[in-house]
């Protein structure tokens, strides 16, 4: 942050707010979509905001110790930091944030920071359900992270860069989405997105009927509220990341200029991310639940194959 620190700060705050709003709305939309699929009316779209407000409005809170106390902080910090290092819109004044100061490898590691911080907090509560959930969650990470890395490595070597901005720039300059340039990598990444969202069939972590919501089981009130906020932002982060990587990102430094350009870019972003989001959501509606080892093995089978194909594709693409 150099001279225009105020503008940059505003940009950061606005980005965070945007991510928060969109993420929360997406959560509500998901509930709505699921309800419609089940022939229900469903809650209003803004239901998540009400839930959050209620949770933050709880007059008493309990925590089990420092790590539990700080667990939601980890999640939020990881989500917002990741957000700041991802180009939400390409070009424009507000949204680059720190995108030139971190690359994909860094993002990969940053994205697990929240889960691990959360896991520590869960561990300290002493609730066995929480620990079981963490065990499952960590196992699942080893599942979906591998195809994701494969697809990332594939596009890294295909385009000789590890920078997200460069990849976006390439896509917008040529007009070719990387989803087209390396379909296998995209496929592998899509599979891992399914895992990342922890929706059905990969929702064994918090399986409510079995584990009493697993890791979350000791969190209530402001802690649950913060976790929800973090989760919503993080959901948006993941969507933007995949959009930027494979779907050309949003915004165009040449085509969209000025305030209208920013708005147009946002609209594009929302459309793309929403469509992307509907993939795990709609699969989640119809799928039953995998056991942990089934889920992990699933990820080590087809997605891994697609990832490997993606790499081979990338090597021979030149």
């Amino acid at each position: 942050m150099t001279g225009n620190w105020l503008i940059e700060l505003t940009g950061i705050v606005l980005t965070a707010l945007l991510a928060f709003t969109v993420g929360m709305f997406y959560g509500g939309l998901r509930r709505k979509v699921i309800a419609r699929a089940q022939n229900r009316v469903g809650p209003p779209v803004y239901q998540n905001f009400l839930d959050l407000l209620k949770l933050q409005g709880k007059t008493t809170n309990v925590t089990h110790g420092l790590m539990t106390h700080l667990a939601p902080v980890w999640v939020l910090v990881a989500a917002i930091t990741a957000l700041l290092f991802i180009p939400v819109l390409h070009g424009g004044l507000w949204f680059p944030n720190f995108t030139f100061k971190g690359d994909l490898i860094f993002l990969l590691y940053l994205m697990v920071m929240g889960s691990l911080g959360m896991a520590l907090g869960v561990g300290e509560t002493g609730n066995p359900n929480g620990a079981i959930g963490v065990s499952r969650g960590l196992s699942l990470i080893t599942g979906y992270e591998i195809p994701f890395v494969l697809s990332l490595v594939a596009i890294m070597i295909q385009f000789h860069t590890t920078s997200l901005t460069d990849l976006m720039h390439y896509q917008q300059a040529t007009g070719h989405w990387i989803a087209r340039e390396n379909p296998f990598a995209f496929l592998a990444a899509l599979f891992s997105v399914l895992g990342m969202f922890h929706y059905s069939p990969f929702d064994i972590i918090g399986a409510p009927a079995e584990l009493a919501s697993g890791p979350m089981s000791e969190f209530g009130g402001k802690y649950l509220g913060s976790l929800m906020t973090g989760g919503s932002i993080f959901a948006f982060v993941k969507l933007v990341l995949i959009t930027d990587l494979f779907l050309g990102g949003a915004g165009h430094p040449d085509a969209y200029t000025g305030a209208a350009g920013v708005l147009l870019g946002l609209v594009e972003l929302v459309i793309k991310t929403f469509l992307l989001y509907m993939i795990p959501v709609s699969i989640g509606i119809v799928m039953p639940r995998f056991r942990t080892e089934q889920a992990v093995r699933f990820f080590w089978r087809w997605p891994l194959l697609f990832g490997a194909l993606g790499i081979i594709w990338a090597v021979f693409w030149k």
């Binding site: 008493t60 309990v62 089990h64 110790g65 106390h69 300290e124 609730n127 000791e218 402001k222």
Partner: peptide
């Protein structure tokens, strides 16, 4: 809500 936040022992799980 610092006033209304209680720190429990690990035995008091839900």
């Amino acid at each position: 809500g610092k006033k209304n936040t209680r720190w429990l022992t690990t035995k008091e799980i839900s």
